[in-house]
């Protein structure tokens, strides 16, 4: 053991680790992610049937999916969907809702200011910061490149 370098040991550990089941994970992610997107499409079609315009329908669909994601998180169901769906459950907007609601619930005991409000974005925060940040940069590039 003493003769092993850190690199040797880490390589040795890699061989002992069970490999993730990529195919099964990918199929589950495809099915669950696809199901969530199909649900989004159903909501869209229903909203269109009320003669709403494209912009309102897009916003309405997002709001309803966020609500459903939050509700399922509160009922203790979304973590089970996430366990099987992986990225298929994390990437859609329902997963984003889950990532904000779950810490908000978890840290309620620490109070509404330093618990719920302060901890709410511990998972989603980076997505917001870099999402908003990169869209600002793209916006500036768009102006510079098109308004010459």
């Amino acid at each position: 053991m003493d003769k092993m370098t850190n690199k040797d040991y880490q390589k040795f550990v890699e061989e002992k680790i069970p490999k993730p089941i990529y195919l099964k994970n990918a199929i589950n992610a495809f099915l669950i992610g696809g199901l969530i997107c199909t649900l989004g499409q159903v909501i869209r079609n229903i909203l269109f049937s009320y003669n709403l315009d494209e912009k309102t329908v897009a916003i309405g669909t997002s709001i309803i999916l966020i609500f459903l994601g939050s509700l399922l998180t509160g009922l203790g169901i979304y973590d089970k969907i996430g366990k099987h769906g992986g990225a298929g459950a994390t990437v859609p907007i329902t997963g984003f809702a889950n990532s904000i609601v779950s810490p908000a619930m978890e840290f309620k005991r620490e109070g509404f200011i330093f618990g719920v409000a302060a901890r709410m974005f511990i998972i989603a925060g980076p997505v917001l910061v870099y999402g908003v940040g990169s869209s600002v940069i793209m916006g500036i590039l768009y102006i510079i490149l098109t308004k010459r």
Binding site: I17, P18, P20, D79, K80, G82, K83, S102, I123
Partner: peptide
């Protein structure tokens, strides 16, 4: 780790 209700996958290790 993560909040209990967060839908993440645990690695085999």
């Amino acid at each position: 780790r993560f909040p209990l209700e967060y839908g993440s996958q645990r690695p085999f290790t």
